[in-house]
Design a protein around this nucleic acid. Sequence first.
RNA 1: GCCCCUAUCGUCUAGCGGUUAGGACACUACUCUUUCAAGGUAAAAACACGGGUUCAACUCCCGUUGGGGGCGCCA
Length: 502
Amino acid sequence: MSWYWGKKMIKVRIAPSPTGYLHVGTARTAIFNWLLARNQKGKFVLRIEDTDIKRSSQEMTQSIIDSLKWMGLNWDEGPILQCDRLENYKKNAEALIKTKLCDFCYCTEEDLKPRKQAALAEKKSWKCNRPCLSLPSDERQKWIMRPAAVRFFTESDGKVSFMDKLHGELTKDLHDIEDFVLMKSDGTPSYNFACVVDDHEMGITHILRGEDHISNTFKQIIIYKAFGWEPPVFIHVPMILGADRSKLSKRHGAVSVLEYRDKGILPETLVNFLALLGWSPGGDREVLSMEELISEFSLDKLGVTGSIFDYQKLEWMNGEHINRLSDDELLERIKNFSKLPTRILYSGESELRFNNHINSPASQDFSSTLLSEDDEYNKKVIALLKPRMKTLLDMESYFFVEPTEYDEKGAGKYLTQEGKQRLELLKTRLSELTEFSVENIEAVIRAIAGELGIGAGLLIHPLRLALTGKTVGPSLFHLVEVLGKERVMQRIEKTMEWIKPS
RNA sequence: GCCCCUAUCGUCUAGCGGUUAGGACACUACUCUUUCAAGGUAAAAACACGGGUUCAACUCCCGUUGGGGGCGCCA
């Protein structure tokens, strides 16, 4: 047992199962646990629940580790793999069998299935009522060579209850809890059993997890009691919901942490955003740094109602975090982002915007459309674009590669014969500038407009189109300055060629 | 069907017996402006319902209704 300033040291864990990418729901649970540990100067443990051998994979374990690391959720112990602890569960199960609170169960899935379906058909709740145990001993003897599971015998009278830090005392009739499996017949422990054994042996003091686990907690309390172990403190936090208020899943949009990384969301944004789903520091504060989250975090500010994942608010918050970064820092982030070795393949519709960089987001190398070799140039672009950026993907590619096409509507309006003449004039006069500065550029353009007796817009629009291919973007004068004389001349030339002669 | 949890603007939330019910996202208008954003200003928007308790309920209690979750040799 560890102590800190006379208080029992808090030890928490996150226990994902490597059957898929790290889900934002699991990530949020990890964030709460991590914040609690860091705030209380406790320990944060990473445990991989890989006992479902068929569905678990090493790749997923790695991607979960990558996700956690990306978010900056560092752990003090682990990763501990449950599959490395199989002997341990076996040993504990054997000890428990001696108490007669559980025993081998020879029923197979095929044995149980018809009973289960019958119960369902009668609209009764399903309960495994020990069919193989009610068999005469000679009959049971015949099954003894079958691979057996270990099943716990739940009392039919009485209640189980535990104190939840958020919900208060939670109680359930033992009658409503079925005889559940402790050890599967393949020798691996069931979730509830492994969880209790591990949490106890690792000295976990607080279990903070989603409220979809409440029904598991009742079973786990029963196991703690059977062993005579002291249960930890339980905190069941509400779930993250999709737009239709059901459990957030793939069909609602992006659900894995890495997907957000790959869409240009900053890790501090995702942590900030997720932390605010079901928790609030109180008052009006919303955009918080990791340090602020740690110092503000407290269990009694947790909420009890489920919350919908709002992609739009995530984007807004990402813009806020991007704008809190210095230009140098942002450049670093974009560099790392453009060099991400693997991007996970997305399925389904994305709720997050994609800009012109991607059509097929999988395994694409953005380095050439996000940045140039010249960091001085990159920084100028960043300074110009930063205030309007929502994601890292908002670096406009036209700063780095020539536009290959022009906005159709805009071109129809401005890239006309008249527009061509104006571009010609623009090109000549701009080329005469010795100092290619915002002030000079603006002065030249306004002067031409005056000479021609037209609004400056009639020069600005065709020029923007020529330079970027788009009708919208940052301040044109700044744009021209950042692109530089060489690119500007080249692109005007190219556009003039593009405009068909009359 | 059984069991468990839950209820403040469309969304995330603040509120912890007495408030003009506050903020943020989104939305709308205005402003700024070469465009689109950003910024600024403003507007609109909520205590699910019914009973109690109390001098006083969004706040406490009980129901109803609504929502969510669980009911695997998945985790």
